[in-house]
């Protein structure tokens, strides 16, 4: 397993290098200039040229690329053109917010998607199956921002039950410990802050999680139908096992193994969705940070954030592959 892990980890390097080259080229192909964006409409050509020199944007692009790669190899992700702060520090301060949101969304997706998939499989062709199918279709096809505005209007404006933006109410001012608001509140036993953090998390996590839940429920349904038709399930029923035990004790664990790899792919979708969700809900994570950086042509931030997203996706995929192999030894690659 350790050799397999090492091989997979080494395999990540060329992929990340390719991502780096593509993103570097793409950022330079986008029309526009960071100095122009930063100085605004009133700036003269002379002011812009001075800022370009200051930010080393007047150097040849090959030199800029080599300089970025050299710094990257030394653990330096560069400095944000907009803020002048190290990108590593800024990403480190925003990553917990994105991970917190992604984990909450994943929890919601699993909590909705798996039971819905199982229920639909057990009542194949029935009314519940049809209702769940339509609901899943709606969650996948309705744009996330519409769902977000609807939930904000319902829970935020009409019922006034949940906050519609941010991670904490503005008058909760604190110094972070881990950067995970919910975890920090727990660590300090601050019930008011914990409640506030969870209430802020609910809407964005639901919006992000619903799309995953909808997809997940369809995959679970298919996998469960396949398992429920297997001989071992028929045998279990023939032996007189309780139906719940048959479904949840035997069929579901087997059905979830192929679903695991789907979760890895959906996680990639979730990272993409985080950009939109974080923007709508003013969630101070890496997604919103990246979008702002793209708008501002903040090249070092766009390059580094994309690398981080790519690395996260690949590491999650790797972790899920490893877990899948643990659960089902048949998935192990044949030893040469």
């Amino acid at each position: 397993m350790s050799r397999y892990l090492l091989r997979r980890l080494v395999g990540l390097i060329p992929v990340l290098a390719l991502v780096l080259v593509i993103v570097f080229c793409l950022t330079r192909f986008i029309p526009g200039d960071p100095a122009v964006t930063l100085l605004g409409p009133g700036a003269t050509a002379e002011q812009i040229a001075a800022l370009r020199r200051q930010m080393h944007l007047d150097q040849p692009q090959g030199v800029q690329f080599l300089s970025y790669v050299w710094n990257l190899l030394h653990g330096d992700l560069g400095v944000s053109l907009k803020t002048g702060r190290p990108v590593l520090d800024e990403l480190a301060s925003k990553l917990p917010a994105t991970i917190e949101l992604a984990l909450a969304a994943l929890l919601i997706a699993l909590a909705i998607g798996i039971p819905a998939g199982v229920a639909a499989a057990r009542r194949r062709g029935g009314v519940l199956d049809q209702v769940l199918r339509v609901a899943a279709l709606a969650c996948v096809s309705v744009p996330a921002f519409l769902i977000a505005f609807a939930l904000q209007g319902l829970f935020g404006s009409w019922l006034r039950f949940l906050p519609v933006a941010g991670r904490l109410s503005p008058y909760f001012i604190f110094k972070p410990i881990t950067g995970f608001a919910v975890l920090d509140a727990l660590l300090h036993g601050d019930v008011a802050a914990l409640s506030d953090a969870i209430r802020h998390l609910l809407l964005p996590a639901t919006v992000l999680g619903l799309f995953i839940a909808a997809n997940l429920s369809r995959f679970v349904r298919s996998a469960m139908i396949q398992q429920l038709d297997e001989d071992y399930v028929r045998t279990a029923r023939a032996k007189g096992l309780d139906e719940r035990q048959v479904v949840y004790g035997h069929a579901l664990p087997n059905a979830l193994i192929p679903v695991l790899s789907v979760i890895a792919i959906l996680f990639g979708d979730m990272l993409g969705g985080a950009i939109l969700t974080e923007t709508i809900f003013s969630w101070p994570g890496v997604g919103r940070y990246t979008l702002d950086a793209i708008r501002n042509r903040d090249y070092p931030v766009v390059q580094s954030a994309t690398l981080i997203f790519a690395a996260m996706f690949m590491l999650v995929s790797l972790a899920i592959d490893v877990i899948g192999q643990r659960l089902d030894p048949r998935l192990k690659a044949p030893v040469a």
């Binding site: 505005f149 006034r160 519609v164 933006a165 941010g166 503005p170 809900f281 003013s282």
Partner: peptide, 15 residues
């Protein structure tokens, strides 16, 4: 308080 979304700002003000 930084909030880029006008619709969200409206909800926040109403609340």
């Amino acid at each position: 308080s930084v909030n880029a979304n006008p619709s969200t700002r409206r909800f926040q003000l109403e609340n």
